[in-house]
Amino acid sequence: MQRPLPARLLTAAAALLLLVLTACSGAAEPPPKDTRAPTAPTGVTATAGSATTVHVMWSAATDDRAVTGYAVYQEGRRVRELPATTLMTDVVGLAPATRHAFTVRARDAAGNTSPPSATVAATTLPANAEDRTPPTAPRSLRATADGSRAATLAWTPSRDDTRVTAYDVYQADTRVHTAPGAATTARVTGLRPGTAYAFTVRARDAAENSSPDSPRVELTTAPAPGAPPNTAPENLTATAGKGEITLTWTPPDTGGPVTHHELHLNGRFATTIVWGTTPPPGRATYTFPVQDPPGTRYTITLRARLPDGTWGDFSAPRVVVVGARSDSGRP
């Protein structure tokens, strides 16, 4: 006959079981609270672009986790909130011929805010509502890749009946930089390694009249160390016809036939171009319909499917306007 365990042994066993269950429960410690603020943004500049606007730019701040956004302050009053990917903005609605001071702060996901940046100032230009003549387009645009993440652009100055107050740099159809009116060079940062880019420059005067685009210039940034060769389609052209757009390009050399290309419009996937048989040699052509009204702008890029089934690098973008002169792909 089995005897029952003494009460003291039962008590000890229960305590041991409780200890084991507690240890095995796997209750994780909560992550430490993020109390460290980002660093203050550096390299802040302010440039008057007109009688009522100032263009503010800065270099990215750092954080022990991640910067999630920036706030721009005018005379201590917050005037702009921007995502972490944006390192420039226009402050608008300012008084003409007036000095304005700006600072920038970074923030993280926990709401920690950096100290303010150094204060920079700019004086808006005198108002000239009668000026309706835009500057001439900048000429002789040149571009040089500065490693894998930056590029330097240079151009011949524009002319204006009053004076040029700013130059706006566009990557495809998006403004990515603004330089003062006396400048003839600009350095564009934040680029991706081994990527094809197309840039244009427009001049602007104090009345916000913008010139036509300069001739386009293209470059490919240096690849990251150990990265494979660039696999972007080359020499893409885009021609707008009545209700359609026609593309031509040279597929990348992948060591085999390229049977699939992805078409992206305005940064979004649109369709996959597939040849059911052996693709044509040399230049490829594809025409697709568009139903948008005249004046609609498209930014077009292509990438090819590689023999291993992955998608290659994007082509340099092309901007085409429905019902207007097409982006032929020639600088």
Rank of each mutant, 00 (worst) to 15 (best):
R149Q: 06
G147V: 06
E130P: 00
D173W: 11
A121H: 02
Y170C: 02
A166C: 02
A179I: 06
A154Y: 08
L141P: 07
T156G: 05
P134A: 13
A137F: 09
T119I: 11
T144N: 08
R159P: 09
T156P: 00
A179E: 08
S158E: 11
A143S: 10
R149Y: 02
V176L: 04
V164L: 00
D146P: 00
T123H: 06
A182T: 14
D168Q: 15
A154Q: 09
T119S: 12
T133H: 14
A143Y: 05
R132N: 14
H177M: 05
T184M: 00
L141Y: 09
P157Q: 07
A150H: 10
P157H: 11
S148E: 11
A143V: 13
T162F: 12
L153M: 05
T162H: 08
T123R: 09
R142I: 01
A179Q: 03
P134S: 11
W155G: 01
A182D: 14
A150W: 11
A127K: 15
Y170Q: 07
V120C: 04
T178D: 03
A151Q: 03
T123Y: 08
D160M: 08
R149G: 01
S158K: 04
V169N: 05
T178W: 09
V164D: 00
R163H: 12
W155H: 06
Y167F: 10
T165V: 04
P138G: 05
V120T: 02
T174N: 03
T152L: 04
R149P: 01
T184S: 00
A137K: 01
R175N: 11
P157M: 10
E130C: 01
A143D: 12
H177G: 01
A150I: 13
A150Y: 12
Y167I: 08
R139W: 10
T184R: 00
V169H: 05
H177W: 11
A172V: 03
T124M: 04
S140E: 15
